[in-house]
């Protein structure tokens, strides 16, 4: 069980830094096609912003509710990734071959670009949930029961 940090410096910095970190994580996630970054790094940055809120404000703070809710999403990222692969098979295409997306009006390269964005989203969700989940596993005693029951 992590209690809120006593220091006003940590709390004020947290109030300011957590939204900035989340914005930066989303930027890295969606800018990964044009510069350094991508799903893995973006997911880790999003996960660390939630971990920061848990470490600075404690498990019970309203700012940490997002981190608790995220715990229910274990496996969703995997589902998104494999689901995109499955969507490619609908028209008789190959698994994870994004050129086989059955979307009218899109050329092949744009389909592959869309597939890259969607699978990166899956990786990011998976990594962020795993990071938060490991931190909760290491730190919490009864918090899991509370968040799952209540």
């Amino acid at each position: 069980m992590i209690r809120p940090h006593d220091s006003i410096i940590v709390q004020s910095l947290g109030r300011f830094l957590i939204p900035v970190t989340q914005m930066f994580g989303l930027y890295v996630l969606f800018f990964g096609q044009y510069g350094p970054g991508g799903g893995f790094v973006g997911g880790v940055i999003l996960g660390t912003s939630m971990i920061f809120s848990v470490l600075a404000f404690g498990h019970d703070a309203s700012r940490s509710q997002l981190a608790k809710k995220v715990l229910h999403g274990d496996g969703v990222g995997m589902l998104i990734y494999a689901g995109v692969g499955g969507l490619c098979m609908i028209g008789g295409g190959e698994f994870l071959n994004f050129a086989d997306f059955e979307i009218p009006g899109l050329e092949t390269a744009s389909r592959r670009s869309l597939g890259i964005v969607l699978t990166q989203l899956g990786v990011a969700v998976d990594v962020a949930v795993t990071a938060v989940s490991i931190v909760f596993s290491l730190s919490a005693e009864e918090i899991i029961e509370d968040s799952l029951n209540g």
Partner: peptide, 27 residues
Amino acid sequence: THTPNVVTSILMDYRSLDTMIETVVIF
């Protein structure tokens, strides 16, 4: 792929199955 970052296009498109298994490992 219309993706300027070659690293991303290799990881997510050409080597997509590898990345999926890595995601499974993290999960």
